[in-house]
Deep mutational scan, measured.
Amino acid sequence: ETGKELVLALYDYQEKSPREVTMKKGDILTLLNSTNKDWWKVEVNDRQGFVPAAYVKKL
Rank of each mutant, 00 (worst) to 15 (best):
K25W: 04
A53Q: 05
G26D: 05
K57A: 12
L8V: 15
V56D: 00
M23G: 00
Q14V: 14
A53M: 05
W40V: 06
L6I: 08
A53C: 07
Y13D: 00
D27R: 03
L29M: 14
E5L: 12
D38N: 12
D46P: 06
G26N: 06
D38C: 15
S17Y: 06
S34D: 15
Q14R: 10
R47A: 06
Y13C: 02
K4P: 13
T30G: 08
A54K: 14
K25D: 02
L29N: 01
P52F: 03
T22H: 04
K58T: 08
V44F: 15
K24W: 11
T30K: 12
L10R: 05
I28P: 02
A9F: 01
E1W: 04
K37I: 10
K58D: 04
M23F: 10
A53D: 01
G26M: 03
N45S: 11
K25I: 06
S34A: 12
V44S: 15
L6K: 11
L29P: 01
R19H: 11
D46S: 11
V42I: 07
V21G: 02
D27Y: 05
V51M: 01
W40E: 01
K41F: 15
G26K: 02
L8H: 04
K25Q: 09
P18R: 09
L32M: 07
E5W: 13
V7Y: 09
L32N: 02
L59I: 14
L29E: 01
E5D: 11
L32D: 01
N33R: 07
Q48Y: 07
L29T: 01
D27H: 05
T35N: 14
Q48M: 11
M23I: 15
N45K: 14
I28A: 02
E43L: 09
N33T: 08
L29W: 03
D27I: 04
D27G: 04
S34Q: 10
V44G: 14
R47Y: 05
D12G: 06
V56L: 15
T2D: 13
K4A: 11
R47N: 06
E5F: 12
L10K: 05
L6G: 03
K58E: 06
T30S: 09
V44W: 08
S34V: 07
D38A: 11
T30D: 05
K57V: 15
F50D: 04
M23Y: 02
V56M: 06
E20C: 07
E43I: 09
L31A: 02
V42H: 00
W39K: 02
R19Q: 12
N36Y: 08
L59W: 09
E1C: 15
D46K: 11
D27M: 15
K24R: 13
K37F: 08
T35F: 10
K4C: 14
E15Q: 13
S17Q: 08
L29A: 07
T2A: 13
I28D: 00
I28F: 06
S17A: 08
K4V: 13
E15G: 15
L6F: 15
T2M: 13
L6E: 07
K25C: 08
T35W: 10
D46M: 11
Y55T: 06
G49Y: 05
T30Q: 10
F50T: 03
Q14W: 12
K57N: 06
G49T: 02
E1T: 14
G3W: 13
Y11S: 08
E5V: 15
E15Y: 05
G26H: 05
K16E: 08
R47D: 03
D38V: 14
T35A: 12
G3R: 13
A54M: 12
E5H: 12
E43P: 00
D12N: 08
T2E: 13
L31K: 00
G3P: 13
L31V: 06
I28L: 09
L31I: 05
R47S: 06
N45P: 12
I28Y: 06
K41R: 11
K4G: 10
L32T: 04
V7W: 07
S17C: 10
L8W: 07
Y11F: 13
W39I: 03
Y11C: 14
E15N: 07
L6M: 10
I28M: 06
V42T: 01
K25V: 07
T2L: 13
N36T: 06
Y11K: 12
G49C: 03
Y13S: 01
T30L: 13
T2S: 14
K24E: 06
R19T: 11
K16G: 08
Q48G: 06
K58Q: 08
M23P: 00
Q48N: 08
K16N: 10
L8M: 14
T35V: 09
E5T: 14
E20F: 07
K4E: 09
Q14T: 14
N36P: 05
D38G: 09
K57Q: 14
T35R: 10
L29I: 07
W40R: 01
F50G: 01
T22I: 03
R19L: 13
G3D: 12
V44L: 15
E1F: 05
K25E: 07
S34G: 11
W40Q: 01
K58L: 14
K24S: 09
E43M: 11
P52R: 04
N33D: 15
A54P: 08
Y55D: 03
L32W: 06
V21I: 14
A53V: 05
T35D: 15
L32E: 02
K41S: 07
L10M: 09
S34E: 14
V51W: 00
L8Y: 11
V51S: 01
W40C: 04
P18E: 11
V42K: 00
A54D: 09
G26E: 02
A9D: 00
I28S: 03
D38T: 14
Y13G: 00
K16I: 07
L32K: 05
A9E: 00
V56N: 00
K16W: 04
Q14C: 11
T30P: 15
K41Q: 12
K16A: 11
S17I: 04
L32Y: 04
V7M: 05
G26A: 03
M23R: 00
G49H: 02
F50H: 05
W39C: 07
Y55P: 01
Q14S: 12
K16H: 08
G3K: 14
K24C: 11
T2P: 12
D12A: 06
I28H: 04
V44A: 15
D12L: 02
K24F: 12
E5S: 12
N36K: 07
K41D: 03
V42P: 00
S17H: 11
N33P: 02
E20P: 05
K57I: 15
